[in-house]
């Protein structure tokens, strides 16, 4: 009996020793050298693996940081300057402070301002809808209301506003990881410098149609009327393809352009409320319904007449629809007879 015990102990110990030897041999033979700083850098990162830095995950970013000669091309938007400072100190390098960015929604064409022209019934995805057609409203540039950006956000920093249909960015949570920008098939999302006191002014429209066409499709479309361009003292506004764009680097946040914009397509964020009549306009721009109607009458005055060449097509369309209806009625009459 005791022999069995002894044999068992000996054989198992032997097996254990052999296994240990193999393990040791393999571990030394196939050892991969890894810079220990990669682990250190990785620990300093937020470990969200969002890909906002352009690398597939935090580990890859850490590797890139360790490999890089200087950190000027590398930035972790989630961790921001603090994190990059830490990374730089681990690696013994210098890093420049960078502005913080947040995502802005460059479309104000809410359900209220844009007439539906068709019913979309495909898969509930902006990408699918965009590859099918211009969208279920007259504006083929605007938001499709299906929320691919919201789905892409890993930080719960976006939601779809049930009233306007448009996505909303929660600035405190936004880390500027760029996910919404790449997910939007219409390129509505844009990363914007956070600005002094979080204030931002931007054109909430990307419609490049002619003024008349754009305005017909959406009440708050930028018509490219160039009033804001003339008003701006800092040359921050450029007009291209019937569309104004405010350069955030040049903009001094004076809010003059917001006042002159007849179609309320220039948005201001995080400014203190204005007084008196300006109040109404700002409210309008933010989409509050009751005050909007008062401003609407001035809108029509601002709106230029549609360019002459557009007229015939529009009118022909009308005439044809009328004709179609007549033809139908005639047919019905024939049937009843």
């Amino acid at each position: 009996m005791s022999e069995v015990v002894i044999y068992t102990i000996i054989s198992l110990t032997g097996l254990g020793l052999i296994a240990a030897a193999i393990l040791y041999f393999v571990a030394t033979k196939f050892k991969v050298f890894e810079d220990p700083r990669i682990d250190q850098v990785e620990e300093a990162l937020p470990l969200t693996n969002c890909g906002g830095c352009g690398h597939p995950g935090c580990r890859a970013f850490a590797e890139a940081c360790v490999k890089a000669d200087d950190l000027s091309d590398l930035h972790c938007p989630v961790g921001g300057n603090d994190t990059m400072q830490k990374v730089a100190s681990i690696l013994g390098m210098e890093v420049e402070e960078r502005d913080k960015y947040v995502a802005v929604v460059r479309c104000a064409g809410s359900l209220e301002y844009r007439q539906k022209t068709s019913i979309y019934e495909g898969a509930p995805s902006c990408a699918v809808a965009a590859s099918l057609y211009g969208g279920d409203t007259g504006c083929s540039y605007g938001c499709l209301y299906l929320g691919d950006c919201v789905k892409s956000c890993d930080f719960e920093a976006m939601y779809l506003d049930p009233v306007t249909g448009l996505p909303v960015v929660i600035e405190d949570k936004c880390v500027a990881c760029n996910a919404c920008v790449t997910s939007c098939p219409k390129d509505i999302m844009e990363l914007w410098p956070q600005g002094r006191k979080n204030r931002k002014i931007f054109v909430a429209c990307i419609n490049e149609d002619k003024g008349g066409t754009a305005k017909k499709a959406c009440e708050v479309a930028c018509t490219g009327c160039s009033k804001c361009e003339k008003e701006c003292k800092y040359d921050a506004i450029t007009i291209e393809n019937y569309l104004a764009y405010i350069d955030p680097e040049k903009c001094k946040l004076c809010r003059k352009c917001v006042d002159v914009c007849g179609s309320h397509s220039i948005h201001e964020i995080n400014f203190p409320p204005r007084k008196l009549k300006e109040d109404a306009e700002e409210a309008g721009a933010r989409g509050k319904r009751e005050k909007r109607s008062a401003a609407a009458s001035t809108d029509t005055a601002v709106l230029e007449a549609p360019p002459a060449e557009n007229v015939d097509v529009v009118e022909m369309a009308k005439a044809r629809r009328l004709k179609s209806r007549e033809a139908k009625e005639n047919n019905e009459n024939n049937e009843s007879e």
Binding site: T117, S118, D136, V313, R320, S324, R325, A327
Partner: peptide, 26 residues
């Protein structure tokens, strides 16, 4: 062909399996 029927829900360019739905008759 006698005008657009009253209850039209969809206009397709092409066949029903692979055609494209149109959002305008112009």
């Amino acid at each position: 062909v006698g005008g657009l029927p009253e209850d039209t829900g969809k206009i397709i360019s092409g066949g029903p399996m692979m055609g494209k739905a149109l959002n305008d008759t112009e």
